[in-house]
Computed example of a mutant assay.
Amino acid sequence: MDDKTATVETPEGEEGAKSKPREDAWYPPKQRDLAVIRQLVSKDFKLKYRRSALGVAWSVLNPLLMMIVMAAVFSSFMKFGSDSVVNFPLYLIIGNTTFTLLADSTNGGMGSILGAASLLKKVKINRWVFPVQKVLSALVNYAFSLIAVALVMLFFRIPLTPLALLLPVGLLLMTVFCIGLSFFLAAASVFFRDVMHLWGVILTAWTYATPIFYVIDILPGWMKTFENFNPLYLFITFFRDVLLFQRVPTLSLWIRLILFALVSLGIGYVVFHRHEHKFILFI
């Protein structure tokens, strides 16, 4: 039977039950993509905390516990704190949660096409949905980690100022940046599986090269120059500015964040779109 003439029967006994074209039973293309993304994000969220006694609480406890350990080690033993930092625990948790968002987004996005291989072989669906969905799933988990940030601010009596309203704007830019990276990594990992191992090494190096658990003051001059073009540090700086230092991010910072977000999305999408028709041959 031709798909266009195939019908879907309404439940028996329903008043005025009639058959209607199968194509009318589906969402329009754009709405269908959004519906798939919502379902996949919900599925990832449920799977992440399935059979966990504390469930979603781990998204709050994990950054808090990491902050406590790192604050004890780096401020007390290694003296990585500084008088320029108003509150070192808050400094740490903002940096750590931002890095976690980047790592979770890109790791998930990188394996999204390979992970959806069985579905892509059976159903015709826009492939860009899968990297985007993984980034949004990481963003949902990050939203819960913000509760931990709020608890630290409350504990140390650091007020929440109107500047916090800029936080969603920074998150939007970082989401765009992560989607771009995920597009690129998802495409690369389909053809070269080694990318998945290499990216773990890059993330580790990126962690230590970014002032997450130490202050930028201890770096030599050439490293400070490097940090001006380190997108991870720039996003962390933005979030620290609005939550910790309670100052308006500089115009230079805004420009660099926007450029990094747009360039990442542009390059990532072009690479992904150019090669996506070959994915089915390699997955």
Rank of each mutant, 00 (worst) to 15 (best):
H197V: 08
P220A: 08
I216N: 00
W206V: 01
P220E: 13
D217N: 07
L232V: 11
Y208D: 14
W206C: 02
F226E: 06
E227I: 11
Y208I: 08
L203A: 12
V195C: 10
F226M: 12
T204I: 12
T210A: 05
I212W: 01
L219C: 03
M223L: 14
N230L: 06
F226K: 03
H197R: 12
I218E: 13
H197Y: 13
I218Q: 13
P220D: 11
I216C: 01
N228R: 14
I212G: 03
W199Q: 05
F213C: 00
G200M: 12
E227V: 09
W222Q: 05
F229M: 12
Y214T: 01
V201S: 14
N230Y: 11
V195Q: 00
P211F: 07
N230Q: 14
L232T: 02
D194A: 11
T210W: 00
L219H: 00
L198M: 14
D217M: 03
V215F: 08
A205I: 14
T207D: 00
F213H: 03
W206D: 05
W222A: 05
A205Y: 12
N228A: 12
D217S: 10
Y214Q: 09
G221A: 09
M196P: 03
Y214I: 02
W222R: 05
L198P: 04
V195F: 08
L232F: 14
G221M: 03
F226R: 03
I212S: 01
F192Q: 13
V215Y: 08
F226D: 01
Y233V: 01
M196N: 13
P220S: 10
I218R: 12
P211R: 00
D194P: 09
I212L: 10
F226P: 02
T207H: 06
V215G: 06
W222N: 01
E227M: 15
D217L: 07
F213W: 02
I202R: 10
A209I: 03
L198N: 05
Y208L: 15
F213K: 02
N230A: 11
V195N: 04
M223V: 11
T210P: 03
M223G: 05
N228I: 04
Y214E: 09
T210R: 02
V215Q: 04
K224L: 10
I202M: 15
D194Q: 13
Y214R: 03
V215H: 07
N230C: 10
L232G: 01
T204Q: 15
T225S: 06
T225M: 06
T225V: 06
A209N: 05
W199V: 10
L219T: 04
M223H: 11
I216H: 02
Y233A: 06
V195S: 02
W222L: 03
V215P: 00
Y233C: 05
F213A: 06
E227R: 09
M196K: 13
T210V: 05
I216V: 12
H197D: 15
F229H: 14
V201L: 15
Y214D: 04
V201H: 13
L232A: 11
F192L: 14
G200L: 08
Y214P: 06
T204R: 13
A209T: 03
N230G: 09
T225F: 07
M223Y: 12
K224T: 05
